[in-house]
């Protein structure tokens, strides 16, 4: 074909450019390693280990909070920490990252899984090559990891959300509740919603869920969805959103439609993003766990696992952080916290 030459030139140039850019890429690697290299505490009785902390998605305050916690203790534990994740919550991007961390000789990989099963083959391959595997925040199937650092059980989260809503509507009959979730395939969301349904059915027959809508992790989609559900279900009294995009979106919708105080909004959200809504009274209470501590605990588990001192059950003493329950290879951070105005003002993540 007459275009062969042209194509060849194009390809060559593509290769050349990718090289040039890869060249530019290396400085950022340098800064990263110097950052990690500041460990210099003379008393290095412990071997330095490389740990990769992979969130579901970068750019979410929740995961940034966990990273902050992890950075806090990484130096002290002689961990050189790399925090990187996909830009959209994609399982396949996580797989290619896991593979490259294995190839780079990382000692421990700690991942918040976008999917319980898709990551399993890659994680199993990593374990076969001697890499220690931890999941945090969102688990995979148990055979594909050694430990799961659990922020709170699905039961704890689901029932706390329902309980604070039920307490607010104590004594009222037939309270319509709408749910604003993130995406239809998010396993955490679905397991929490399942628990919420179960708790409502068994303990709070006065509540019932009329609709489940999705914000697709976009504020404008969430806002529109919340407004639409308020209009489509005029008798709806409460919106519960187990998603950190959904809660502020629902609060914003309630304010826009002038229904502050008429519709009760709660859910799982980061304190820093809820400050304005808690201060102006649209949201009274919401639920979360201590996110930086989740990151810290993950680092302690990584260290203990690399040293081979991690108990399979019983109690795990994580330095200054405290003692945590271990059961079935799962380390439990504790119960979720209900945030009110006072505790929201104090939190900085």
């Amino acid at each position: 074909m007459r275009d062969v030459k042209k194509i060849g030139a194009g390809l060559l140039s593509a290769v050349a450019i990718s090289m040039a850019v890869a060249g530019c890429g290396s400085p950022s690697q340098l800064t990263q390693s110097t950052k990690a290299g500041q460990i210099g505490n003379a008393s290095t009785t412990q071997k330095q280990i490389k740990v990769a902390l992979i969130p579901k998605e970068i750019g979410i305050p929740y995961f940034t909070g966990a990273d902050q916690g992890a950075q806090l203790v990484a130096n002290r534990l002689h961990i050189s920490l790399t925090y990187n994740g996909p830009t959209t919550a994609s399982a396949s991007d996580q797989v290619s990252m896991i593979n490259s961390y294995v190839a780079q000789g990382y000692n421990v990989i700690a991942v918040s899984a976008n999917d319980p099963t898709s990551l399993a083959p890659a994680l199993k391959a990593a374990m076969q090559r001697g890499v220690k595997v931890i999941t945090w925040d969102s688990d995979v199937i148990p055979s594909a990891r050694q430990y799961f650092v659990d922020q709170a059980t699905a039961e704890g989260i689901g029932s706390t959300l329902v309980e604070i809503t039920a307490n607010h509507f104590k004594g009222q009959k037939n309270v319509q509740v709408g749910i604003l979730s993130s995406t239809p395939t998010n396993p955490n969301q679905n397991s929490w919603i399942a628990v919420m349904k179960k708790v409502i059915a068994s303990k709070y027959p006065n509540l019932h869920i009329v609709t489940i809508q999705y914000d697709q992790e976009q504020p404008d989609v969430g806002l529109t969805a919340a407004e639409n559900m308020i209009k489509a279900y005029p008798n709806m009294k409460a919106i519960i959103s187990p998603d950190s995009v959904g809660v502020p979106a629902a609060a914003e919708a309630v304010e826009k439609l002038g229904l502050k105080g008429k519709i009760y909004v709660t859910g799982l959200a980061d304190p820093i993003q809820m400050k304005q809504y808690v201060n102006d009274g649209t949201v009274q209470q919401f639920v979360l766990w201590n996110v930086p501590e989740l990151g810290e605990l993950t680092m302690y588990v990584a260290r203990a696992l690399a040293d081979g001192t991690m108990p399979t059950s019983g109690e795990f003493k994580a330095g200054g952080l405290g003692t945590f329950k271990v059961q079935d290879h799962t380390v439990l951070l504790g119960n979720p916290t209900v945030f009110t105005k006072a505790s929201t003002d104090k939190a900085n993540y």
């Binding site: 959209t88 504020p219 806002l223 995009v245 502020p248």
Partner: peptide
Amino acid sequence: LYLAYNGFATPTTGSD
């Protein structure tokens, strides 16, 4: 307008 109306934004704004 998006920012002013929605009140908050994520780093994936507009990708959809």
